[in-house]
């Protein structure tokens, strides 16, 4: 069975380590916050100027001056801090954020990522994604493996790039893959999903070594 969005988020959350400063992108990455493993404390950075982001507020505690990068109302945790956008991107560009988790339209076998523009159709802008992928120490992409049978894990991205040779790990609805110098290395497969199925939906070079274990969700 292919994973749903929450299961992808849950699998990515297993990559978090105690004390990590984490930047979560919009979409599936936001859900990762719901699955931080027991006994691990991570601090969430929101690039609009908040370190120590908390849960969504209740109706009574909603504050228009307190939002996340997706413009959603949020709260802050004890030990939080607020700052301007230049300071926020000093944290990101300066390599102080331990891990960045973001979505993508396409990823190439060399770790290039496309996530911000579909020419002639959709232009939302790159927001902070280009800064994040250019500087994060570790980048995990959360995405669907394919769209209507078309692979999104490609030899070369077809859409405008967000960054080059930057993605380290990908968690899709079908698999966990590491981006290596030789291509996508299959690390785990979703429960019940065969290696053949993953292979057929991966256009870029797929490295399969030995038995591929199932993810533990």
């Amino acid at each position: 069975m292919a994973l749903d969005k929450n299961q992808i988020a849950k699998r990515i959350a297993q990559e978090l380590k105690d004390g990590y400063y984490v930047n979560l992108g919009i979409g599936i990455p936001t859900l990762v916050a719901n699955y931080v493993p027991e006994g691990i404390e991570v601090i969430l950075q929101s690039e609009n100027g908040l370190l120590g982001m908390g849960q969504f507020p209740t109706m009574e505690t909603v504050d228009a001056d307190l939002i996340n990068a997706g413009k959603q109302t949020v709260t802050y945790n004890p030990g939080a801090s607020f700052f301007d956008s230049a300071t926020s991107f000093a944290m990101i560009r300066g390599g102080h954020v331990d891990i960045t988790i973001l979505g993508a339209f396409e990823v190439s076998e060399t770790g290039d990522i496309s996530s911000w523009k579909v020419p002639g159709k959709m232009v939302k802008g790159m927001g902070g994604a280009m800064d994040l992928v250019a500087s994060a120490k570790n980048i995990i992409v959360a995405m669907q493996h394919s769209n209507k049978g078309q692979s999104k894990l490609l030899k070369k991205c077809t859409l405008p790039l967000t960054g080059v040779s930057c993605v380290k790990k990908i968690v899709t609805d079908l698999a966990v893959l590491d981006v290596t110098p030789n291509g996508f290395k299959l690390v785990e497969r979703a429960p019940g999903v065969s290696v053949e199925e993953i292979k057929s939906l991966t256009e870029g070079n797929l490295i399969i070594e030995g038995e591929i274990p199932e993810m533990k969700i």
Binding site: E47, D84, S85, A86, S88, F89, I92, R93, M126, G127, G128, A129, M130, D131, A134, S135, G163, V164
Partner: peptide, 25 residues
């Protein structure tokens, strides 16, 4: 890129005409 935008604005206020960043390369 958002961080580049922020820094281009900061640079003006700080009297820095140009700078280098990895974002967008």
């Amino acid at each position: 890129p958002q961080g580049t935008l922020a820094e281009r604005i900061r640079a003006t206020g700080a009297g820095i005409p140009a700078f280098f960043v990895p974002a967008g390369y």
